[in-house]
Simulated scan of single mutants.
Amino acid sequence: MGVVVTGMGLIGPNITSIKDFSNILKDKKTILNREEFKGEHIFTGRVKGDEMSYPYLNAHKLPKSAQMLLHATDRAIEMAQIQPRDYATAIIVGSSGGVITEVFNHSIKLHKGKRMSPYAIGNMNGHTLANCLSTFLQIEGPTFSLANSCTSSLDAIHMAKILLQANEVDVCIVGGVDSTINDLVLSGFLPLKIMQTGETFMGPFSTGEGFAMSEGAGVLVLESEEVAVKREKEIIGYLTESSMFQSAYSSYIADPEGRAMVKAVERTIKKGMPTYINSQALGSQLNDDIEAMVYGEFFVDKGVPITSIKGNVGHAMGASGMFQVMAGLISIQDQFIPPTVRVDVGKYEQLPVVDEVMHCPVEQVLVTSQGYGGNNHAALFSKVRMT
């Protein structure tokens, strides 16, 4: 039996629901803002405090990233119509920055001589992101926290697939979350010149000037097909295949030849050719070049369309893969390919980059992601179970 998606929920900049996200994709909206930082104009996507809501008492004491995760989890469970504690359930959360903003803020308070909160140690513990779900949902099963850079949420999905296929659990609550827009992280990225600066934001597959950092959380309810069928629950999509490879090239620079991504994609598409590819395509030169090279090897001669949502919602670091997956699942449900926003279609002339909404049958979506430090991931989601 397969691994299926029965629920999804998310929160992002000006996004509090799947419906919001779907509208943004269809309407070609960019929800990023320009702001000044250290004399530069950068582009960010921030989640406002009043956009988060959840029915859990005292959750407001948790870090922002945990609160976003609770918001997304509540929506995903509601869609799945499930009580996770009634099943053998695992919780897996992927995050690139974890609670780094919480650590930074407490460090500033300490430097200023302010008293540390009794909640500080717990809130500076990266595993708080996963165990807060265990606590509020009263789930006593396995709980995992992954910190695999920008592939973290896709890697969490991969781990869920392993647990479900091994019959270790019946259900997995799988999350991706990041809230890294702070002075420490921004100051570290600026010298790398991979964040876009200037007056006008350009999207993926364009000028190669860099990405826009955003934040948010996405959660999927994954379960074995057998459990979903017994529950008579509508299946949103199937996780047909996923594959992850480490480039082993450098802790600081991506392998320009993209060999690990080639391996991940090659292994994943053995289960079938995608209707289209939802590419990571940040907008930075090296990242986009690698993605273009991989697609040129496998898909261009077959006319498989390519899109990226980074012009819509920016790059939410470890949560970004989850946003891509949900965009793919929405497109499978509503039968359309979302366009790439703010793209320069002449930059990569050899690629069939989608720049307008395409209404067409969507059977399978390939999602790709690269992580700082060498992680590469490809995942294939399908409308029906593939044998």
Rank of each mutant, 00 (worst) to 15 (best):
S17E: 14
S251N: 09
K263M: 03
E51Q: 15
K310L: 05
N375L: 05
S284T: 14
R34V: 10
E168S: 14
A120C: 05
N376Y: 01
N105W: 03
M358C: 05
N167V: 15
E36V: 11
V219C: 11
Q324W: 13
S250C: 03
G97D: 03
K193Q: 15
V300I: 09
R34A: 11
M79F: 06
T143K: 00
H106F: 14
D334Y: 08
F245G: 01
T275E: 15
L146A: 10
H377V: 12
K61Q: 11
I269T: 04
T197F: 00
V354G: 01
E199A: 09
A254Q: 01
G216M: 10
V300D: 01
N148P: 05
P13F: 00
L69Q: 01
Y87S: 04
E215Q: 12
Y87C: 00
V313G: 01
G237D: 04
I269F: 08
R115H: 07
A260C: 00
E215I: 14
M68R: 06
T6K: 00
I306D: 00
S96P: 09
V304W: 02
Y348G: 04
K61F: 12
F189V: 13
E223M: 14
T89E: 02
G94V: 13
G126Y: 12
G94C: 12
L164C: 13
T151E: 04
V185I: 14
P361L: 03
K302Y: 15
S96L: 03
N123I: 07
K230H: 15
E266A: 15
V103G: 02
P191T: 11
N123A: 12
F381I: 13
E102S: 13
D301M: 08
A72M: 01
V227F: 06
V103F: 12
G283R: 10
A76I: 05
L146Q: 07
S369T: 12
V341R: 00
G208I: 14
E241P: 05
T151R: 06
A76M: 03
I309E: 07
Y252A: 15
M195F: 07
L239F: 07
N312F: 02
M8D: 04
K48M: 03
Q196K: 14
P339M: 03
V294S: 05
S53W: 05
T73F: 05
G373D: 08
K112Y: 14
L366Y: 09
T268A: 05
P204T: 03
L57C: 12
M79D: 06
T44R: 04
V265G: 07
G175V: 08
S53G: 13
T307E: 02
K38P: 05
L133G: 06
V343A: 10
K48F: 09
R34I: 06
I253Q: 02
K29D: 01
V169N: 14
H71G: 13
V221E: 03
S22W: 00
F336S: 07
M124K: 06
S187R: 02
E356A: 04
V354M: 01
L129F: 02
L164T: 08
T197R: 04
L222H: 15
M79E: 14
T180F: 00
I235S: 03
E36M: 09
A76V: 13
L366W: 08
G176S: 15
F37P: 14
S153F: 11
F201S: 02
M261S: 08
T180L: 02
S284A: 09
I121K: 11
L110D: 12
L286F: 01
D155Y: 01
N376A: 08
E241N: 14
T240D: 06
Y372R: 03
G318K: 12
